[in-house]
């Protein structure tokens, strides 16, 4: 039995220690914003925050994240829209949207470390997040817009 705090709620989980967090969230807890895309750290669709840091949940074993605090897209705005989400809506980023939870969580993490990112910074941090629909340009624009909203702090 493992303990996990997910989006502020304490949860008990009975799975094998090596089960990736992604599948714990999706299939055991029914939290579906983290997506399965590749399972091998190639696409970023499964990205969540573990203790505030953006991590590929398909690579995080249950035993290694037990007791930690997980935040998924459903809760990044604390009940409101996060400025990054607002920017995503304004720029109408998603097409199919399947990659976008991962993109948004990665972008939040980027802006927390680099409040005014350049295009190069964005390339550096966001290139691990695949978008098969090709929304990259809008993601770039939305990140710059979010940086502005967040006041570059």
């Amino acid at each position: 039995m493992f303990m996990l705090t997910v989006n502020g709620l304490k949860r008990q989980i009975d799975v094998v220690p090596e089960m990736p967090l992604l599948w714990v969230l999706r299939d055991e807890l029914g939290i579906t914003s983290p997506k399965y895309g590749c399972g091998i750290a190639q696409c970023g669709a499964c990205t969540v925050q573990i203790d505030g840091v953006a991590v590929r949940s398909c690579q995080a074993r249950m035993a290694d994240v037990a007791g930690k605090a997980i935040t998924t897209l459903e809760a990044v705005g604390n009940g409101k829209l996060h400025p990054v989400q607002e920017a995503w809506i304004e720029h109408q980023v998603p097409q199919c949207g399947y990659c976008q939870a991962g993109q948004i969580i990665q972008a939040i993490s980027l802006l927390e470390t680099i409040p005014q990112p350049t295009d190069e910074d964005i390339n550096e941090v966001m290139s691990g997040n695949l978008c098969r629909c090709g929304t990259y340009e809008r993601i770039r624009a939305a990140i710059h817009a979010a940086a502005e909203k967040m006041g570059g702090k």
Partner: peptide, 9 residues
Amino acid sequence: DIRSKVTGD
């Protein structure tokens, strides 16, 4: 469909 895709709903 934009909002629900941005909130994870």
